[in-house]
Nucleic acid binder design. Structure first.
Length: 552
RNA sequence: GUCCCUGUAGCUCAGCUGGACAGAGCGGCUGCCUUCUAAGCAGCGGGUCGAGGGUUCGAAUCCCUCCAGGGACUCCA
């Protein structure tokens, strides 16, 4: 990539200057090359002289001068110059930029892909919501984040598997079964109450009704506990189906739906516990079995098996990660959790150490909670109590593309208000449509070219030399950098910002440069540029899991 | 009480591995449709970067204290 090329260029210049004794000997700091925000400062810039000033005991401007004198720039660089207080700036040659259009056309849909991952296997586990209720907006955020990351990592040369972990056993499931059984009985005319700690949402009534309709009263004759567990199973299966459908509305699809209970049936649970035991991390106290995480630097221990003999969620999670790392041998695992799971990160890392894995192999992305609101009114989203606004309702109201874009536009670290009113009200002036409109516009130009039978395959890109054209190309060649940045930082929010920037630059180009005109050679050259723009924009939209409309 | 995230323009947010005048969208105000989509373009206005200290030639960015909002500290998940 260009940045690295220039960085090594700078490194060599410094070394050469030092060998000649023009620059003081000093260790070279990391050479950072960046895009200046002000275009007058060139396409690339480095503040290297500023960083070296102290160690060399020389003025930054002097260092900058000496270094720049020793730079042997690659042919694609047009100009290297020094600017106060000590920057070295680079500009790219216009004719080199224009030939990049050909590279983009040649790359086609693979434009933006990199080999960063070198085929390493990465698992992205996300959503993984208990199948005890429908998804709400907060889950949508994790879903969009995870699926986008998976897209980007795939484009970056990783072997990616997207997985949903199903908590299909334990307390919550039992409570769900009892609640559903109560609703079921009520539905069939029996007097009974939903347990106070149960699921009171209206969706449980609908679910009970559906099951009555489909399977009649056959669970009624069972003993209470059997009825609850069997009905619970039926209910979980139905909830999962619904969750899957809702996610598909958002363009989120999983490779694997992994069952928690399978870890107990398949032996992973026992194996993981034995491994911890043999490592000496397991202790019995107060009638329960504990993971001695305090021995690994944690502030407290955690229960694995309760005094009633039932395993905790944490124990299953250990078995799950045992399976991820030791059985399926993923090189890297990315878990996307809500902020309410923040505190579990350190103990999970401790587990990895206890299992003999490198904690660095596990990356946990904590995404902050989403507050749903309609204007001033805050909408509660608790599953346990009362009615909720489901993700499905929000998607239907706002639209999947807008939902995805809104979720992606904020970094996972910042909590967000999802204002349905705002999301809808904005729709005319929404950045989502602004970006998609640029794509539709491009499509419309290319349609016109097709109608007029213009074959631009031999267009001469060297004719692309005006400022709006070159500015557009500069944005186009940024895409691989953006993709790589997202893959490295695991921060997909850079994508929507790039998309918007690219759209802005395209719209501006469109205004200033007539594409299909009487000037045949120029028309063909510009059509190539337009097509390259489409490739970059469509790629960005696809990475974000959004549609690429041909018309709007 | 301890730990984590956040606090930047009226609103929603980027920027935060320290560097060139602090950015975008929305909203407000001005202009621009005989030519490929005006869901567009060009421009204007708008900021004590939560507060106070510190480190540095240089701090929105690093350190400390405080304030505010959210989350976590369950033999819940």
């Amino acid at each position: 990539m260009l940045k690295e090329e220039l960085a090594s260029c700078l490194r060599q210049a410094v070394l050469k200057a030092q060998q000649e004794g023009v620059l003081a000997a000093a260790a070279l700091p990391e050479v950072l090359v960046e895009h200046p925000q002000n275009p007058e400062h060139g396409d690339f810039a480095s503040g290297l002289p500023l960083r070296m000033a102290r160690a060399m005991r020389m003025a930054p401007m002097v260092i900058a001068e000496k270094v720049s004198e020793h730079i042997v720039p690659p042919p694609k660089v047009d100009r290297v110059w020094v600017a106060p207080p000590g920057f070295i700036n680079f500009t790219l040659r216009g004719d080199w930029l224009s030939t990049e259009v050909e590279s983009i056309l040649a790359a086609g849909e693979s434009y933006g892909d990199t080999e960063l991952g070198k085929g390493k296997r990465v698992q992205v586990e996300f959503v993984s919501v208990n199948p005890t209720g429908p998804l709400h907006v907060g889950h949508g955020r994790g879903a969009v984040l995870g699926s986008t990351l998976a897209n980007v990592l795939t484009a970056s040369g990783y072997g990616v598997e997207k997985e949903y972990y199903i908590n299909d056993m334990g307390n919550q499931i039992a409570t769900f079964g009892r609640s559903l059984y109560a609703r079921y009985q009520q539905c069939l005319g029996r007097e009974t109450e939903v347990p106070s700690d149960g699921y009171h949402g209206g969706y449980m009534i609908d679910l009970a009704k559906e099951i009555v309709q489909e399977q009649g009263d056959r669970f009624l004759s069972l003993p209470e506990s059997d009825g609850a567990s069997q009905l619970g199973e039926v209910g979980v299966a139905r909830m999962l189906r619904g969750i899957k459908q809702d996610l598909e509305l958002l363009n989120v699809v999983f490779d694997i739906w992994f069952s928690e209970s399978s870890l107990h049936q398949g032996g992973q649970y026992n194996k993981a516990m034995e491994l911890l035991q043999s490592g000496g991390y397991v202790v019995e106290k107060a009638n329960a079995t504990w993971f001695e995480s305090s021995a690994l630097g944690e502030d407290k221990d955690n229960v694995l098996v309760r005094s009633d003999g039932s395993p905790t969620y944490f124990a299953s999670d250990i078995a799950y990660h045992y399976n991820k790392f030791l059985e399926r041998k993923f090189d890297q695992v990315i878990n996307i959790w809500g902020a309410d799971h923040q505190g579990h990160v350190p103990r999970m890392k401790a587990v990895l150490r206890a299992l003999g894995c490198d904690p660095e192999q596990l990356k946990v992305i904590i995404c902050q909670l989403v507050t749903l609101r309609r204007g001033e009114e805050v909408v509660k989203v608790s599953k346990r109590s009362g009615d909720i606004v489901t993700l499905k309702e929000v998607i239907e109201e706002v639209g999947p593309d807008a939902c995805r874009f809104i979720f992606l536009s904020r970094s996972a670290d910042s909590q967000m208000d999802f204002d349905i009113e705002l999301a809808k009200r904005q729709s005319a002036e929404n950045p989502v449509y602004y970006v998609q409109y640029a794509h539709a516009r491009i499509a419309s130009i290319l349609r016109l070219a097709e109608q007029r039978d213009i074959d631009y395959s031999r267009g001469d890109v060297s004719l692309l030399a005006t400022e709006p054209e070159l500015t557009l190309i500069r944005r186009l060649i940024l895409l691989p950098e953006i993709v790589e940045r997202v893959a490295v930082t695991l921060e997909p929010h850079h994508l929507p910002y790039y998309a918007q920037d690219l759209a802005t630059v395209f719209h501006s180009f469109y205004k200033q440069c007539r594409v299909v005109s009487d000037d045949e050679p120029l028309t063909k050259a510009r059509l190539k540029l337009v097509r390259a723009s489409q490739i970059a924009l469509a790629k960005t939209l696809r990475l974000m899991g959004m549609s690429t409309p041909e018309k709007m």
